[in-house]
Design a protein around this nucleic acid. Sequence first.
DNA 1: CCAATGATTCGATAAATGTAGAATTATGAA
DNA 2: TTCATAATTCTACATTTATCGAATCATTGG
Lengths: 112, 112
Amino acid sequence: MQPDLVIRALGALAQEHRLAVFRLLVQAGAEGIPAGVLAERLGVPPSSMSFHLTQLANAGLVTQRRESRSIIYSANYAAMNGVMSYLTENCCGGVPCDDAAICGLTPDRKSA
Amino acid sequence: MQPDLVIRALGALAQEHRLAVFRLLVQAGAEGIPAGVLAERLGVPPSSMSFHLTQLANAGLVTQRRESRSIIYSANYAAMNGVMSYLTENCCGGVPCDDAAICGLTPDRKSA
DNA sequence: CCAATGATTCGATAAATGTAGAATTATGAA
DNA sequence: TTCATAATTCTACATTTATCGAATCATTGG
């Protein structure tokens, strides 16, 4: 994954509402969530939500499909994996995060 | 790690120069790199570099120590691990990711 | 003390980001 | 067609971010 795309993805996630949206979409899985539902759940006006969804889409983190009147957003797991891989390889000392915190274990396992 | 700090860390890394700085610091290890050397290596004016280093420090991603006239920056690995853990747990479908790549499989938790 | 070095802070400026109402587009139903 | 629904685009505005020269602060050496 090229740095430019990684930067866009990080920037896309570095915002309260967008991080919350992405978390919801990750939980929702392939089924996805309509834009309007996301707006309502987070208490954000539709036009603002649209702006944020555009940012996420532009970073490649979400995909969209139309279903009747709704436009349904889904998380792009592959893109997220790409970001995680980049960070692991370039920003974690090249250590494959073996028994350290990264892979799902609680961070204070690092209690050296 | 609380979401607010995660957002600040993501925002700190979502910038060309800062991502480059952090990568250099990760490679440098505990020894760290002086601010001036970072500025020169990346071709950024000292005042601009200072701005970016402040952002990184404010996000908790780097630490600084004075050594004679130089101020030496080092990567905070624990903070980075905290960010990775948060993303793995909240943005990768909760999959423990240790038998996939980072989180290489789409969670078909919707299988019911 | 005085000058030189390394770094930050200040100041001004340009660009990008976030917000949200109003208008517009797309779809479906009567 | 006409209306209602779902979402986006348009528009304006305030805030934040990024840049970088100039001024300032901190440290060391003469």
